[in-house]
Simulated scan of single mutants.
Amino acid sequence: MTTFRVALLVNNELRRGDESLIDEWRADSDDRLWVDVQEPTQETIEPLLEQRFGFHELAAEDTLSPNTLPKYDSFPNYDFFIFRTVAINVTEHISETYKIAAFLGRNFLFTVHRRPLEAANNVWDRLPGDRRILARGNDFLLYSIVDMMVDAYFPVLEQIEECVDDLQDTIFENADPMQLDELLHLKRDINVLRRSSLPQRELLNQISRGDAKLVQREHLIYFRDIYDHMFRISETIDVDRDQMTGTMEAYLSVVANRTNEIMKVLTIFSAVMLPLTLIAGIYGMNFEHIPELHWLHGYPFALGLMISIAGLMLVYFWRKGWIARPRKRGHDH
């Protein structure tokens, strides 16, 4: 069900209500209007946007499309923006993308989003106690919403970094396939953030340069601050991706070293058993005339020969360092 929240600031007096409050706003006045639309449908939003306020049909179409990337379009009487943010449950590895479309005019702001948006809700709740948010201009109101959307990236990145640090510690202690599975899920989460942050960084760069004509010059510094945050987020994402790649390589290296150790033990065991098998095979042949076959000490001689050869081979492997030998302790000088 489509819900409308309307805030109207007239002579520093704030009024809030539903869409009926829009009728009390005049486009040629200095009154400030904010219309926030949640869960829009084509039947309810297109008459409002296209017919009542004359917004372009392509902008209205982008408003309803769930896959539109962050963008900025300039129209004669308003600016049109698409912003996105991402909410990720790092424990369950469930990600949700939130989109908000904004129509910014001289004295109005329309925001449209499909699902409840925490940033818009927070600003709506703050308005009665701080009406300066709307009094300073609708562009400042837009900044307040976008600023909270961008700042929502930081807690998610911190959680991901903590998970990667924990994985690095446990991998060197005891590498396990579950750790690789967790690492791949974290890498997917960081890629979701990256896909959302890159186009948004470019959009905020456009606004901070002054390309949006309806963003007041004195408020550009606030959008530059958001752009700096978005730039830091993008850099952090790249660092985290590199860290995950390094962690994955460390995991594969630990597993490969463990496999090599196992193969070394099996190879040494096979090498020791080879001459013993040869001796047993020689004396196990069914020939009648074998000199040692009827010798009184033939059996203990064969066993002693096997033990001696095995012992000499183990000593040889140990001296070569192929079998772990105790480390020499350094002497204090």
Rank of each mutant, 00 (worst) to 15 (best):
F269T: 14
A271F: 03
E173M: 11
T85S: 08
A119P: 10
R258E: 14
S197C: 13
L167Y: 12
L127Q: 00
Y72G: 05
K71M: 15
F231I: 01
F140G: 04
L184I: 07
L305G: 09
Q200T: 05
D139P: 00
E92F: 06
I45E: 09
F301R: 01
N11A: 12
L312H: 01
V35I: 13
E158A: 08
S196H: 10
K213N: 07
V86D: 04
F172W: 09
D79Y: 07
A27R: 13
R195N: 11
A152V: 07
C163T: 03
V6Y: 14
F140H: 08
V239T: 15
D73Q: 13
V35W: 06
W25F: 04
L104R: 01
P47N: 09
L58A: 04
Y222P: 13
H219I: 07
L21Q: 15
L274E: 07
H294M: 04
M244F: 03
L180N: 05
F103E: 04
R16S: 12
I309L: 09
H113K: 02
A280S: 08
Q243A: 12
N67E: 13
S144L: 03
R84N: 12
K264C: 09
I262A: 15
V265L: 15
Y72I: 15
A120R: 00
R15Q: 15
L203G: 14
M148G: 11
P116S: 13
F53K: 02
R16V: 02
L186M: 01
V272A: 01
N286G: 11
E292I: 11
P76M: 08
